[in-house]
Design a protein around this nucleic acid. Structure first.
Lengths: 130, 130, 130, 130
DNA sequence: GTGGTCTAGACCACG
DNA sequence: GTGGTCTAGACCACA
């Protein structure tokens, strides 16, 4: 289901988290959909259940998923996702964007990327304001 | 000079790195300017010199600064900064931007932010405002 | 395992690096093989773990090995090795070769050495001996 | 006369040494020729006389130059250069060559480079053995 | 048990 | 006085 890179410095449980979030962003996992059980996911990826458990817990804390005791874990609605998370992401976005501009990446390049991503993500695109 | 957060999961030496890069991006540290000596910075921030040393070493490897033995450390020119760093930043930018759009942040909001930052960073602004 | 020379101007951690690279070149360490743990290597060589850690860290940055948190360090594939490293080596090679020729070492002597090493390293040998 | 790179990790006195040796190798400095005085060289390069002094001392120890008290320093003949130096260089050559082959540089590439350098250095070239 | 980070304190080469 | 290296010893997150 998800691709892990053991060589990456990023901990496995974070790779699992990122992979799941990516799936939500891309639409591979839809709101309300049930996630595989911790054990099922662990065995299918051949890693320790503790690692999956940790990823799920962290995702729940950030509001991306919610667990129902005895039922499993489910993808939350976008509104459930912690506004703190959005603010954190915006802060990161500012920092990264600032550094990219500093490094000489053209403002228009970033706008083009932004347009492309907005189309993909299904947002309506402003017809041609730029 | 820089603010540290010991409770943050991010290692101190990385916080130092980030802080210094931010200073370069914002213009607080200009090309060729001398950085505080390892010892001076360490004592002013009340942390171990080895930790500062490590931050400087890492910044040097990424091309942000260069060290002259017996003289000190200095801010490098933008051209010296490793292109790998730029690519890494772009990858992060894509991921963060994608997730922000997913979370409902409007494309135009991000464009506005981008415009504001581009002006600050001294880039000439495209004449037709978009 | 490796030989250290404390009187050498070359730092210990670089001697460790060189020794490990030599092992890879000679085939004593194969792709994917696990390196001794930082602690194990340190105690077997009677030096500080931090010094080994530094050697490993540097080797990882150059692409010779990779570390997995909680698992250990492993020999990378040749393709992972930074192309910058190759260019640096070629520059050194040119300088050293030039000086050897200047010092009177015959071109054919170097060619003979080259042939011998190419055979050892498993490269197919050009059929006409030169 | 010589180009210095203050950003380079290599100490200045070594850069001076390397530069002078390169001049000898390339023929810019011929056997018996007088080197600039320590003071003259230092002022022309805008660096500390101690640094030049150190470079000269080191070159003399390796046999590349010799000093006549009250007269100055002169380029030695090739035969004066310590045979230890040649052996050291050969050891380095073997290590670097081995690693280059390991990294996938073709044996023939190195031979081509060798041929080119031999021509430049004025050695007679074997007509076309390869 | 593994790698990663941090501190405290020391010594050295360089300019 | 500067950066660079090294040791000793400690704590933490990860799998």
């Amino acid at each position: 289901m998800l691709q892990l890179n053991y060589r990456d410095a990023k901990p496995i449980y974070e790779q699992v988290k990122d992979g799941l979030v990516s799936l939500m962003v891309s639409g591979g996992l839809k709101e309300g959909e049930k996630l595989p059980s911790v054990r099922a996911m662990a065995s299918s990826m051949a890693i320790n259940p503790n690692t999956i458990q940790r990823a799920y817990e962290s995702l729940e804390q950030e509001g991306y998923i919610y667990s129902v005791l005895g039922k499993g874990s489910f993808v939350a609605t976008r509104e459930d996702i912690s506004p703190r998370r959005r603010d954190e992401l915006l802060a990161v976005w500012d920092k990264v964007t600032g550094e990219l501009l500093f490094l000489g990446v053209a403002e228009d390049d970033l706008k083009l990327r932004l347009n492309r991503m907005a189309v993909q993500s299904g947002n309506e695109v402003s017809q041609d304001e730029n």
